[in-house]
Design a protein around this nucleic acid. Structure first.
Length: 559
RNA sequence: GACUGCGUAGCUCAGCUGGAUAGAGCAACGGCCUUCUAAGCCGUGGGUCGGGGGUUCGAAUCCCUUCGCAGUCGCCA
């Protein structure tokens, strides 16, 4: 609401100045850095040059125009700035009333979101955490705003890696071992292949040959592949259940490969494919390297399958936006993909976005175990859960369902620790810092929610008793303004495809409440005051829980 | 080498579409529980915003340059 008012003020102000002085300026109403300076600040400097007046004089002119708008309780000039405040009583009432109205967009769009998309026959690594939680949070946020969302998990179930795996299995593996401990056994085979291939590069050729046969429909290989895929899916679904993440669609590279003749003939018809060194490539404009679409042995590549897949998705969902939540490493790849789509005149090209994310680091390097292999997400989650369990034991040992609680707190802590960081940047992983119950953590927010609920559960309130004059105090008014900012934060998350703004917002709102809580008694003698505070608290609780839900974090009642 | 991104307090990160004294958490230090969950709150100390130049009334923010780190760069995904 305040955000909207600021826009209105800017427009009115600039129009008035144009009418009165005949000059075009772009004054912008801002939120002052220091809240002592009021609710709205307008730097008047742009006027100085246009009117050849001093900053103070310019600010005075602005303040007199502002005065005519009848929107503010106080207006003052400080240096080249005009500061203004609203009536706290009036604003608080309209903010709190408006919280109940759902804010859906008038023209909903369809967003297809490709996220998580792990490679099968491998464990679910921490590296996949970011795409998974960012993609899922974004899908929730978009859907909250009224957009149509298609959550897609595009399984990496094809490619030369399966040639390697099948080679390793047929030469060194046995099916009983795989069946008794699928993922570890398959990973072991894959690792062994890569080790042996270091000295025998001809193994890589062999793997490519096997993949080519698999793609061409070799029955024996296909049976193996199907079984391996089944094991992986079981594993992944367990992880998704723990994270509270779900999808609308599972798509598959293998499926895309099967249908890829279509997109290849589209490329051919448009004359985009060029023979080069035996392969067929699409040349791209400078400075991008060409995209290899067909290997010299005729097999498809990642981009071939992705191209087929995106046309298929467009046919199925008619998306306005196709978001790929994939790491920074593939930045060049996605610009290549978009360039090819441009050359193909794909009608949906503009809506294709690479929602890139950074790495999870340990001591400045990509997170790995001591022997250099990737860390399993399961191990991280389990450690987080046991740390949470230990905290509970220390702080509140008499609680019931401690194990279940520890799971909710531990997993949410890892999710929050990821989402609070800006999407595109790498971040340093520290499990102790993430699971701490103090500071900028998931548990801090959950704890705040629990504290609020423990008050609300003690006493019902009557909304008719609410006295909006009581929102005059700084702490009460600050919370109202924070509540007002929620929908703006959601919009920012959408415009930047970045859920960290919501995560930071929840921290801020929690701190405001905790600060208030330490100073003032809620369940006081005066019923008007008590019910007013309880009403505000119930709104804060609603917003915190709304936020936790959007981020796929758990809500707990006691902790 | 080329392209992209990053470099802000001891540590982890915000701020970057230019605006008032550069913010938060952790760590350090000092306070606050006969009162609604102290897992909290309040306060103190701590910064050449990597270096240099430029644009501007005004630069952490924009431009140039330089150093450091990371990622990527035709038959992997």
């Amino acid at each position: 609401m305040i955000e909207e008012l600021k826009n209105q003020i800017s427009i009115k102000l600039n129009n008035e100045i144009k009418n009165i002085y005949g000059v075009e300026v772009e004054l912008k109403a801002e939120t002052p850095k220091n809240k002592e300076n009021g609710d709205v600040a307008i730097p008047a400097f742009p006027l100085c040059k246009a009117l050849k007046k001093s900053p103070q004089e310019s600010a005075s002119l602005v303040s007199s125009i502002l005065d005519g708008l009848n929107m503010f309780e106080t207006i003052s000039v400080l240096g080249g700035y005009v500061n203004a405040t609203y009536s706290r009583e009036v604003l608080s009432k309209s903010v709190l009333d408006s919280l109940d109205e759902p804010k859906k967009v008038d023209n909903p769009k369809t967003y297809a979101i490709d996220f998580s998309s792990p490679n099968i026959a491998k464990p679910f690594f921490v590296g996949h955490l970011r795409t998974t939680v960012i993609g899922y949070a974004l899908s929730n946020i978009l859907s909250y705003r009224g957009h149509k969302v298609v959550r897609i998990n595009h399984l990496g179930d094809f490619g030369t890696q399966f040639g390697k795996l099948i080679y390793a299995f047929t030469n060194w593996g046995n099916i009983e071992e795989v069946r008794s401990n699928p993922i570890d056994t398959l990973v072991g085979l894959y690792v062994r292949f890569n080790q042996e291939a270091k000295n025998k590069p001809e193994l890589d050729d062999e793997a490519r040959r096997i993949f080519k046969e698999l793609e061409s429909g070799n029955e024996e290989y296909r049976t193996l592949w199907k079984e391996f895929k089944e094991y992986s899916l079981n594993e992944f679904n367990r992880v998704y259940k723990n994270l509270g993440v779900s999808f609308d669609v599972y798509s598959s590279e293998a499926e895309a490969s099967r249908k890829s003749a279509r997109v290849i003939s589209m490329l051919r018809e448009k004359g985009l494919l060029v023979k080069d060194d035996g392969a067929e490539i699409v040349r791209l404009k400078e400075p991008y390297p060409p995209a290899i679409v067909i290997r010299s042995d005729g097999a498809t590549l990642y981009i071939t399958r992705d191209l087929e897949e995106i046309f298929d998705r467009y046919d199925k969902y008619h998306f306005d936006y196709m978001l790929y939540c994939v790491g920074n490493e593939q930045k060049l790849y996605f610009t290549q993909l978009k360039e090819v789509l441009k050359l193909m005149n794909a009608p949906f090209e503009e809506g294709v976005k690479h929602v890139n994310n950074g790495l999870i680091l340990k001591d400045g390097k990509k997170m790995a175990t001591r022997d250099g292999s990737a860390v399993k997400l399961d191990d991280v989650l389990n450690e987080s859960i046991s740390l949470a369990r230990a905290h509970i034991e220390e702080k509140n040992p008499s609680l019931e369902n401690k194990d279940e609680l520890a799971k909710k707190i531990g997993v949410s802590a890892i999710i929050f620790n990821d989402l609070k960081n800006y999407r595109e940047n790498d971040y340093e992983f520290d499990i102790d810092a993430a699971t701490r119950f103090e500071g900028q953590t998931g548990p801090y927010i959950q704890y705040t929610d629990v504290r609020i609920k423990s008050i609300l559960n003690q006493c019902a309130y009557n909304k008719d008793n609410v006295d909006y004059k009581l929102f005059n105090t700084d702490s009460m008014y600050d919370m109202v303004k924070a509540l007002d900012a929620f929908e703006d934060v959601i919009d920012k998350c959408i415009s930047e495809y970045a859920p960290n703004y919501l995560a930071k917002y929840l921290l801020n709102l929690s701190t405001l409440f905790n600060s208030f809580y330490a100073k003032e008694k809620v369940l006081c003698e005066n019923i008007i005051e008590r019910d007013t505070k309880l009403y505000l608290l119930s709104k804060i609780k609603d917003v915190i829980e709304k936020g936790l839900n959007l981020l796929s974090m758990s809500i707990v009642d006691k902790m």
